[in-house]
Design a protein around this nucleic acid. Structure first.
Lengths: 200, 200, 200, 200
DNA sequence: GATGAATGAGTATTCATTCAT
DNA sequence: TATGAATGAATACTCATTCAT
């Protein structure tokens, strides 16, 4: 007998729901999904354990909402860069901007990314949301590029590959900190590769 | 008084320990670390629940051993390619070989990779082992390349970046299967980028 | 400071209280007392969860009121039969009437009977109300019979036993539906036994 | 992944399982199924909460086993009476024996009967077991009676009705204790009715 | 009076780990 | 060494009851 999940309308309730999501965001990021319990989430959000189940079906439902927030935080800033893009296209500064923005996003959200992504393999809804995110980003970027006249063959593959490469680099920057790597030099390498990928 | 963890000497015992590790490997890969319990591992390995604690300090200790096995399985085949490398260096076929081998490795081990990597963010030992793996691979490859006379500036950055890029691509191939991507064309894109990265 | 339980005076309030009792009646009958929660009762009654505690001390208090209603529904129709009883007493048609009426009552109320009666063993108030019901029915019937001149020895025992027997039969009819039983023939058996019980 | 439920083979384990069932029996009888929690059962049985789930799938599974024990305790003694029954049939002492035995059984088991029976309305397995019990008893008694030459028309109805009547009486004796009833006189009434039911 | 959001104690169940045999 | 029964702390989720509005 599924007790109704409240869809909060009033400001105070929306706040409360958001506080729970934010608490989930922070705790999942810090300790991982399985090392975080609902009581901790409630406490961190400053609410009772019971009310959590007024807003969410179950713990996984919190995860899904956290995932949505995460996706929004990752997707939006990159898309904003393309928003006001104008021909003629000058790839070099564009790539630089995207790389720096992506690194910045990863710096703030990589922990939650790991926590969420790790569930992809066992939770299809999570997996699908990640796939969809990649698809949406690729499609949006391709559309924007086409709209300003850039439409080479294999554009989907190029854009997707570029995205992956940039994300790899950003992930490296945030986490790995190998002492034998100069990340600025690596950044130059990324740009060099991608310029070559897009030109011709 | 901490019960000693046996370091098995006899063949039968070594077998048993390995069976437990292999069981952990398969179950962690299939269901994830947190969705696998020690009783399942024991059963899958054909041993009693109790004896697991004769060979491993705790559940996490199994994880660490699984991680070692994983690292070995990923590291060795790539290094083997470089083993008999001879000058003069022809990058194009070499990259093709590495890419195909990496994709093949990922096909067999990506599930466990996800399961293990997801623990990086909350377990420093796991995180360090992954860092070390990347470092070892980079170092080995760089050494080999140098030994046959290839030693440009920024060689560490180039090699590391190439590795990351190839791994990204391999991961894509195994999992994502975006319907708008032709993975052979993307493979060509990877090779194109990397050739440019290494030449000059 | 115990919040006063309102004894509703106004028509609207009486309606509301009755709606809650009726909702309790239906849900307890369908799902049992422990499988019904107060939110469901409130919803079924079309009132808020909070106001339930304006009319009832607690959940058990609803139960007690439901029990009263139930007792009324079971008691009254049987007593009505005796209301206009006239000498000389002809037991056979009287028994037939009572049996059929009792079966009819059970058909409509056996589910709630089970739900309520099951609480007898752990709730003395419930248990007492059931005892009282039986006592009242026995006393009323005995009084009526005496008033029209039927007053054999052991009249209390006879009447009480007859009531029990008829209730057993009615319960059988409603629930058990053993395929090896012809319930009309059993009805004849009941009448045969009871006639013998009362004559001489 | 249903963890295996142990089916205990060794004496100590069987003892333990039985202790849990017996604990359930006593607590369900005293407090009812819903007012008893698994921790109480474990404590009463002198075992840990965890091991309960080694022997039983869930709390309801304990209930089902308790029900089986109950049925055995109620069924067996009555059947024993019929075991050595010999022609010619003398109903009067036989009925006396059965009534006294039934009252004795009810004295010891009526509390658990209420607790279990109350779940009939919401749990089909429970309901079916009760129906089956009645059927088994009726069938057995009818068979025995037929085997010694008593086989009137409507024998199923008569036997079933007799059983119900005796159980009603026994239940009355145990619980109701109405002060206006002399239970010995009522017992005589029961015998009188049943003799009439069976003769001719 | 009325609402329904909020509380937090309570419960069934799981599982890493221990231990008697 | 090996077994697998046993432990008990931990956790997701429920629900009778309260309370701010």
């Amino acid at each position: 007998m599924a007790d109704l999940i409240r869809t909060p309308q009033q400001k105070r309730s929306i706040d409360k729901k958001n506080r729970i999501i934010e608490a989930g965001y922070e705790l999942f990021a810090r300790d991982g999904y399985f090392n975080t319990n609902t009581a901790q989430i409630a406490k961190h959000a400053g609410v009772s354990t019971g009310i959590v189940y007024g807003y969410f079906r179950d713990k996984r439902d919190i995860l899904l909402e956290v995932l949505s927030i995460y996706i929004d935080r990752v997707f939006t800033p990159v898309m904003d860069i393309f928003e006001n893009l104008q021909a003629p296209l000058d790839f070099e500064p564009l790539l630089g901007t995207i790389i720096d923005e992506t690194v910045s996003i990863h710096k703030n959200n990589d922990a939650i990314h790991e926590a969420l992504h790790s569930l992809s393999s066992t939770d299809e809804a999570v997996s699908n949301k990640f796939l969809e995110l990649e698809k949406d980003m690729t499609m949006n970027i391709v559309d924007t590029l086409k709209s300003i006249g850039y439409a080479p063959v294999d554009i989907y593959e190029r854009v997707h590959l570029a995205m992956e490469t940039i994300q790899s680099y950003a992930h490296e920057c945030v986490y790995d900190l190998h002492d034998y790597i100069d990340y600025d030099k690596m950044r130059a390498g990324v740009i060099k590769m991608l310029l070559h990928l897009f030109n011709d």
